[in-house]
Design a binder for these strands. Structure first.
Lengths: 193, 193
DNA sequence: TCATGTCATTGACTTAAGTCAATGGTATTT
DNA sequence: AAATACCATTGACTTAAGTCAATGACATGA
């Protein structure tokens, strides 16, 4: 159990058998079925979730009732409403399973204890959030400076598995576009080459 | 010296006199004049910089030669090309002083030593990057879901001192807009109320 | 003081994305 | 197998942002 979680952990921070055993005590497995929610807007986000298997999306609803996807997560990724998790304010995001999924949960008290108990865990978290920051910075840069066609081409070369597994209108939502606009951008791309 | 730096540090992590003295050994002060560069595209970013006084901008140049501002930094903020700093790849960003400024620099070896020597420093860095991540997430959300007028109103209420100190066309660049477009959005805002 | 550079605004026009509606395909359910 | 829901595409039209050019206000420096 937790194979992928520890594989990814060790890629960031070396871990003795003993340290791994300590961490295991704080983890909780969870299975969730397609279309079920791990978090709903208004609830406090009490955990973050590592994806061992499956796919999820995190989204908010804007004033006009449009869904805005802010993140996908597939195998090996972590998903949470970090702001709600850290502040215990009500979540503004929903997290929904797009496929039947297997998760590893770390709740708030486990997180806090691990931070004090195990220096490697703090290092892991620091590197994890740093990676997320850099990925989001790339996303922001591409929104601001690239054309829609370039952005889609870039997205599908970076995350081909997401393009395979997720409906196109959700990718449009992630890109901040209407489904029609993404459809036309794809058409122009396919005509070009 | 370093008053604001330690004030901000202590707001995140408590610090004994001794620990403060340790950190001080790794810091380097630097004064930089308006229009001078702290970092130029193509060079490796060898430090990050805390702003004790003054104002700076970080920007890249896209293929069409447009400047794209990705960050401002005023008193109390930190600025760096984090990717270049961590990987030692050439920087894609330029960092330029918008005013005569006083900085506190932490270079790569100082950073790495502090991480191993002082647990509070790792905690500080973790909290710092977490804050930057959450701020960027808010920025991304507002780009994707708000109108230009709402975004500008939000920006100027969040960062009134930047609106005061920075030319308007740079704020347009930060927002991913042309100066003309921001000018017209401001006009519509002022007519409304 | 005059000249130059920087900057914000405005107008006229173009281009990209959104909106609304219709169509047909595919998967899922009963 | 038929009915239903979900999804991607396309067309016609509207709206928002970009482009290009001109103007006037300052500020800075020779």
């Amino acid at each position: 159990m937790y194979e992928l979680f520890f594989k990814k952990f060790r890629e960031r921070v070396p871990l003795s058998e003993e340290a791994e055993a300590v961490i295991k005590q704080y983890l909780a497995p969870k299975k969730i079925r397609k279309k079920q929610y791990l978090l709903q807007e208004g609830d406090v986000c009490r955990m973050f979730a590592f994806v061992e298997k499956g796919a999820l999306r995190e989204y908010s609803i804007d004033e006009q009732g449009n869904e805005r996807i802010i993140q996908f997560a597939v195998e090996g990724w972590t998903i949470s409403d970090l702001y709600s998790f850290l502040t215990a304010e009500p979540a503004v995001y929903n997290i929904e399973a797009l496929e039947d999924s297997e998760l590893v949960l770390i709740n708030k008290s486990a997180h806090e204890e691990l931070l004090t108990v195990l220096p490697q865990y703090e290092t892991y978290i620091r590197l994890q959030i740093t990676g997320a920051y850099l990925a989001m910075q790339r996303r922001l840069t591409s929104i601001i400076s690239a054309t829609t066609e370039e952005r889609y081409a870039h997205f599908s070369s970076l995350y081909p598995e997401i393009v395979q597994r997720v409906p196109q209108h959700m990718i449009a939502s992630y890109m901040g576009l209407k489904p029609e606009t993404l459809s036309r951008a794809r058409k122009r791309l396919s005509e070009k080459k």
